[in-house]
């Protein structure tokens, strides 16, 4: 049970750090990395759920959710980076210049 708590609590802290990063960061790449960190926190939490009950094998459904989530996060990140690069090419700067977030 302590293992579960250790990973789950770490996941929550990482999630919060990522959220802070997305709001505060100005450079697009930093925002995207912060989003990935948030995702990392969620995935850590999912793994901790899977490892909880020690029966025949760890719960495969959260592991499957995790794998799907990682691929989806990868796709979204790649998409975001491509868009950020296009913004850089077109505007010459990699920040969202007009407005807060």
């Amino acid at each position: 049970m302590t293992m579960f708590l250790a990973y789950a609590v770490t996941g929550m802290i990482v999630f919060a750090i990522g959220l802070y990063g997305v709001v505060i960061a100005r450079h697009l790449l930093r925002k995207i990395i912060a989003l990935n960190i948030m995702a990392g926190g969620v995935f850590l939490f999912l793994i901790s759920i899977a490892a909880r009950n020690s029966q025949a094998f760890p719960d495969p459904v959260p592991q499957a959710m995790l794998l799907t989530g990682v691929v989806v996060a990868l796709s979204a990140t790649a998409f975001a980076i491509a868009l950020a690069r296009r913004i850089y090419t077109v505007t010459g700067s990699a920040t969202l210049s007009d407005g807060e977030r």
Binding site: M1, F4, P58, D59, P62
Partner: peptide
């Protein structure tokens, strides 16, 4: 809960 019935079974 720390020992729920997961879907492993």
């Amino acid at each position: 809960p720390s020992e729920p019935a997961g879907l492993a079974r």
